[in-house]
Nucleic acid binder design. Structure first.
Lengths: 241, 241
DNA sequence: GAGTGGTCTAGACCACGTA
DNA sequence: ACGTGGTCTAGACCACTCA
């Protein structure tokens, strides 16, 4: 009986994938209590250790949080992994003890042609919500952000007033779990961007581009420009065992 | 019997820590074959599942590689985690199909005062090997690098000729396993650095500072400056489960 | 108090790859 | 061929914490 009833992969692997799919599809949202181990034992006809191994892997991947007596729950999305910490900008700024302010500069709704920079890899010609906004730390411009949200994947975004809530913060609360790719580069800002950032033309800026998916479906793309003096990214490795 | 014979932590956790310590201390170097599961069972007086759980955690942390019939081996250090890929520059450049060239600009050996930028966090007043070097992609300067190596931790570095081999590449092959912290920022280059990079003063550059430890002991510190046009960092998240 | 997860056992069979 | 790891079982006791 050991290995595979169907498929060619270990059973604990299959259980892990099944649960992971429920979470990444959004079917089990953050905070959702998943079935207890005995239910999985019955469903898959296996021992508790096997179920435990599957769930333990999801815990170490950060998708699940377990609490004794209470049960196992879909984790609230940490902010894109513990290694490269790119949390929403409001918490960064407040964490420094500065005052956070947010401003929506423009908003548009249109189909994005395949190949266009914003929205590339989000699928061909999706209906997108396009925004430009600024984040302030005290009186200074902390970041300029261009954002595209795939309305097919996140229709609720269409009815949201992004004049009062930043799209990044809103997405963190409304889109359960994501995969992401970051591209980090440096840039001498153009005159137009310099004006919006309230810095001199040519000032070095850190640029973070992020593509985000959920279960393979494009969710959002963002490009954030930080004046060099405002922000350093920090990444750590080596969970000392 | 269950929980802890001594300490207050699970046994598999203790085994994991013990093995991890052997590796991070360099006592078990990369490629070293660790004892088989039955030996650990005897040593700790526990069942095979418990040993297996400990080793499995080290595998998922990337410290150990297991091969059926052959045994379990200390992993050869990957290049600083799969998430933020900062391999040695030679492979980056060659991977692009460009010609790699390396040049040592200066070398010095001195005790670094605590608080000095290079060498901070490497311990107070360690004897350090300090270098400045350049990396070329074809005819362009790809990166300017300042490097400090803690000679107390890596004495072999003192007898190495860094005119022919880049310190980053050498360290990758000679220091078994490391923890690291990266700080990524942007910068308008000074006139002095611009000259070395063969770019105009004020050109935006990506700056990557990296501190590296092995088992808590500082190994090296490096600051690499990339002209904005030369290099983008890419980081991915979301091991789709 | 009762149900959850956390840990552990003492076995077992199997797949695989090296010797 | 044989020893390694890979997987799995059918139990067990315990700690914790929510109801």
């Amino acid at each position: 009986m050991s290995a595979d009833a169907a498929g060619g992969q270990p059973l604990h692997e299959r259980i892990r994938a099944d649960i992971g799919r429920e979470i990444l599809s959004g079917h089990w949202p953050p905070g959702h209590r998943i079935p207890v181990e005995h239910e999985f034992m019955a469903e898959y006809g296996c021992s508790r250790m096997t179920v435990n191994k599957a769930i333990a892997a999801l815990v170490s991947a950060g998708l699940i949080v377990r609490r004794r007596r209470a049960g196992s729950f879909v984790a609230r999305p940490r902010v894109h992994s513990a290694v490269l910490d790119i949390p929403d900008l409001e918490s960064v700024i407040r964490g420094r003890g500065e005052q956070y302010q947010y401003e929506l500069l423009s908003q548009d709704r249109r189909r994005v042609a395949a190949g266009e920079t914003l929205g590339a890899q989000l699928g061909t010609t999706q209906k997108m919500l396009i925004m430009t906004c600024r984040h302030f730390a005290d009186a200074q411009v902390f970041a300029l952000e261009q954002r595209a949200i795939n309305l097919a994947a996140v229709p609720e975004a269409g009815e949201t007033d992004f004049r009062t809530v930043a799209p990044g913060a809103w997405l963190l609360r409304h889109v359960p779990w994501t995969e992401a790719e970051h591209r980090i580069s440096a840039l001498n800002v153009s005159a137009a961007e310099a004006r919006l950032l309230k810095v001199k033309t040519g000032t070095a800026c850190l640029v973070v581009e992020r593509h985000t998916w959920r279960g393979g479906e494009g969710i959002t793309h963002t490009r954030q420009v930080f004046p060099a003096s405002m922000y350093d990214l920090v990444a750590r490795f080596g969970h000392a065992p």
